[in-house]
């Protein structure tokens, strides 16, 4: 019953996250070693032998920040789609429940109404918590995207319009300048908060999968209960909807506490 779109969006978003992690991995170490991201980008040898090489490396650094900005933007976009699809999928499951045959004895109908109400309440809570996670990760990723592209553009502008004097002393001085700022900007924009955003996303993802499976299980159980008309045996859970959703609600509480502490 869980829409395929849910799993598709999850896979796409995971891939984008992996790409961003791969792109940013070891950036500071590489920068420290040799103001260059060439090992990250193309695996080239990083030895500097001429002014021309200096210019090339300066351009590569700008390209790196440009690419990283784009990758952060893609993860922001794909994770947003994932969160939205998750909320929609939970709603779609609710609608499925509404389709259970209504030609049931009155006492069962009353129980069903209570059960639906509980499920709807759960969906609202779940959506709100997903929104919290979405807002946090979006803010972090969009900020990184913005800072990185601005920094890449500033570097490009300097290289193209300012005309750096083509001598080793100037190149070296400018590289030192960029090394200092690249490290600072990287740490400021993509260190602590990005790791929290990864954690928040991972936690939201794990819980969304669990919750979808749980909702799916409940729908199947409800359909079975009506299919076999053995209310006394198979529909026992309807007698106490609150109890039936207790575990799921406590899962939401755990998730919310986790997000509150983390963010």
């Amino acid at each position: 019953y869980v829409p395929m779109k849910f799993y598709d969006s999850l896979r796409t978003s995971d891939r984008s996250k992996q790409e961003l992690q791969n792109k940013l991995r070891n950036f500071l170490e590489n920068l420290q070693k040799n103001l260059t991201t060439s090992t990250l980008l193309s695996g080239l040898d990083t030895s500097i032998s001429s002014t021309q090489n200096h210019f090339l490396k300066l351009q590569e650094l700008s390209t790196f920040f440009h690419d990283a900005s784009e990758t952060a933007g893609l993860f922001a976009r794909d994770s947003e789609i994932f969160y939205e699809v998750t909320k929609n999928s939970s709603y779609a499951l609710l609608l499925k429940l509404r389709q259970v045959p209504m030609a049931q004895p009155t006492e069962i109908k009353i129980l069903l109404t209570n059960y639906f109400a509980e499920m709807e309440f759960f969906h609202i809570m779940f959506s709100e918590i997903m929104d919290e996670a979405l807002e946090y990760t979006q803010n972090v990723l969009r900020a990184i995207q913005k800072v990185f592209i601005y920094y890449a553009d500033a570097q490009r502008y300097i290289l193209q319009d300012w005309n750096l004097k083509p001598n080793m002393v100037c190149c070296k001085m400018y590289m030192d300048f960029l090394q200092l700022y690249s490290a600072q900007i990287f740490k400021c924009a993509a260190d602590h908060e990005l790791n929290i955003a990864y954690d928040v996303y991972a936690m939201a993802e794990t819980n969304a999968k669990y919750i979808m499976r749980q909702l799916e299980f409940r729908i199947q159980r409800l359909f079975n209960c009506f299919l076999f008309k053995s209310y006394q045996i198979r529909c026992q859970f309807l007698l106490n909807a609150e109890h039936d959703f207790e575990k799921l609600f406590s899962k939401l509480e755990e998730l919310e506490t986790y997000f509150d502490i983390k963010t």
Binding site: V147, Y150, Y151, A154, I158, W162, N163, L164, K165, V169, C170, M173, Y174, F177, Y181, Q184, I185, C188, A189
Partner: peptide
């Protein structure tokens, strides 16, 4: 806040500024 508004002008030292034909 990561990138100062007057970057790179305000952050460059004089000797580095002299390395450019603005």
């Amino acid at each position: 806040d990561c990138l100062p508004k007057d970057f790179p002008h305000g952050q460059m030292q004089k000797d580095l500024k002299s390395c450019f034909y603005f």
